[in-house]
Amino acid sequence: MPIGEQAGAKVWQRRTTKHQLGIWFGWLLGVALFLFCWKQISDVTTWAFFWDVPRIAGDIGGRMIPPRWSYIDKLWVPLWDTLNIATLGTAIAIVMAVPVAFLAARNTTPSATLIRPIALLIIVSSRSINSLIWALLLVSIIGPGILAGTIAIGLRSIGFVAKLLYEAIEEIDKTQVEAISATGASRWQVMAYGIMPQIAPAFAGIAVFRWDINIRESTVLGLVGAGGIGLQLSSSLNILAWPQVTLILIAILVAVVVSEWVSAKVRHAII
C-alpha cells in the first residue's frame, strides 16, 4: 500500500513501512553475519605468517628482478605449443559443438524428450569439469604432452561453445525459417538458408571468444604435464629460479594481450 493520504493530499512512497523495516532488518542480519565470519576466520589465522607477508613478498620480488631475458630462447617452442593447443582445441570443440547445439536447441532438436536431454547432458558434463582436471585425466590416459592438452581444451570448450550457440539458435526469427520451409526446401536447405545466416555472427563471435579464453587456459596446462609454457613455469618454480618465472609471466601476459587484440579485431570485423 504505497499510496496513502495525508492532510487531504495523496502521498506516494516506494515501499510500505513494513516492507522498509524488513529491508533494514535484512541488512542488519547481513552485517552481523559478516562480523561473525570475520571473527571466526581471525581466530584460526596464524597472524605471525600474515605479518611476515610484506618481508617475504619483498624478498621474492627482489629475487625476481631483473628477469632473465636470455631464457626467452627456451620459451619460443613452448609458446608456440601453447598457441597450437588453444587453436586446435578450439577447432575440435567447434566441430563437435555445432551438432550438439542443433540437437540441444528447442526449435531444431529432432526429439525434445530423448535427444535434447542427452545433448544438454553433454554440455553440462563438459562445462562442469575444468580444463586442468580434464588435462590431469588425459595425461594419465594418453600420457603427458601436447595431445593431452589439446584434447583437454577441446573437451572443456564443447560445452561452452554448444551452450552459447544453442541459445543463439533458440533466439532466431521463426518467420524467416517458415518462409524458407514454405518454398519446399528440404530440412538441410532450411538449415543452410533459414538458420545459418541468422546465427553466423553469433557463431563467429563465440568461436573467437573461446579461442581467446583457451589461450589463457592452455598456459597453465603444463603444470600437470599437458604441454605448453606451463611446463616451464612449473619447473622454474620448483628450482626457485625466480628471474625465469618473471620472464615466463611476462611472456604469458604478452601472449594474452595479443590474443585479446586479435579476437577483438575479428569480432569487430564480423559483427
Binding site: 526469427d173 517458415e178 518462409a179 524458407i180 528440404s186 538458408y193 533459414g194 545466416p197 555472427p201
Partner: peptide, 23 residues
C-alpha cells in the same frame, strides 16, 4: 508474409533464388 520474412543477412538475389530451393 506480413513482416516480409526475408533472410535478413542474405542479399536480395539470394533471397529471390531461395524460392527455387525446392527444385
Amino acid at each position: 508474409f506480413q513482416e516480409y520474412a526475408l533472410v535478413e543477412r542474405l542479399t536480395v538475389m539470394e533471397n529471390v533464388l531461395s524460392g527455387q530451393l525446392g527444385y
